[in-house]
């Protein structure tokens, strides 16, 4: 009796906490949606919550700002860099997690340190190299540039997840006659599906929203979505409505993607399932 009411209280409190967290997380986004629907004159009046929404801003960003062009570029770049980084990164992570060799820690650390270069410090050399290779203003240059932070991220994330998996499972498979490759593809990757999903989500988010490289390494052809924010920082002031509309439109695909794949995090195979 007592313990049951305690469970109830606990459930209630945790539900309350979840709601609070969600509301705080979502509020700025909701406010952005509101701004994107508000007529311009009301942007500076937060006391107005009820108004007849205008879709002008959305129409404007697709008609005049040609948002689809940028979205297409973003899509290609993100897809390219995420797939490549995940493949190369988890492969390397497997190596780091399972085969310790001389200097492996130093090498792993060196890889991590690459992520620490502030983009503003590396963008000029990238620009010069890209120009020499003639790939300025292409998708390739951005895919490559983003790999510099996505690969280290994938390696370290996946290494963490691989190490969580007990070695015995793998050794049993090896005894059964599987090759290392098969172990990696058939057992480790599926087992660390939650990790792979989380890593993929963050690779996508980081590349989707990257700004400095996207602006400085491209011209008119390969610009991605985040750089469109500079359209709205006008000399005469911020064009809030359109900028908020772009913010909404930019965030939506990622949110949808994340919500679609999140079930892989939840339904990730447990070890019990493998053993059965």
């Amino acid at each position: 009796m007592n313990s049951r009411s305690w469970t109830k209280v606990k459930r209630f409190l945790s539900a309350l906490a979840l709601v609070a967290v969600s509301v705080i997380a979502v509020f700025p986004f909701v406010y952005m949606v509101i701004v994107s629907l508000k007529p311009r004159v009301l942007t500076y009046d937060p006391s107005v919550w009820v108004f007849s929404p205008t879709f002008e801003n959305y129409i404007a960003i697709f008609r005049q700002r040609n948002l689809l062009h940028f979205a297409r570029n973003s899509f290609i770049v993100v897809l390219g860099t995420t797939l490549l980084s995940l493949a190369l990164g988890s492969l390397a992570a497997y190596g780091f997690a399972r085969f310790s060799f001389k200097k492996s820690e130093s090498l792993a650390f060196w890889i991590l340190s690459l992520r620490m270069l502030p983009p503003m410090a590396t963008v000029i050399p990238f620009f010069i190299v890209a120009r020499l290779l003639g790939i300025l203003d292409t998708h390739i240059v951005l895919i490559l540039a983003y790999m510099t932070f996505n690969i280290p991220f994938s390696i370290w994330m996946m290494r963490g997840f691989f190490e969580e998996i007990p070695r015995e499972i793998e050794e049993a498979a090896l005894v059964d006659g599987c090759s290392h490759w098969q172990v990696f593809l058939r057992i480790l990757l599926p087992l660390s599906a939650p990790g792979l999903t989380a890593t993929a989500i963050f690779c996508v988010i980081q590349s989707w929203n990257e700004f400095a490289f996207a602006l400085f390494l491209t011209g008119v052809n390969a610009r991605t979505l985040p750089t469109t924010v500079t359209f709205f920082l006008s000399v005469t002031g911020v064009i809030w409505g359109e900028m908020a509309a772009v913010g909404v439109v930019t965030a939506l695909p990622v949110i949808i993607f994340a919500m679609l794949v999140q079930k892989h995090m939840i339904r990730g195979l447990t070890f019990g399932a493998v053993k059965q």
Partner: peptide, 25 residues
Amino acid sequence: VNWDVMEETYLKNKQLMDFAGGSQL
């Protein structure tokens, strides 16, 4: 005519990089 429009500080950086890098965009 092609347009590359952006916020003023970024514009300056971009113009100077285009010049110094010789990319002739």
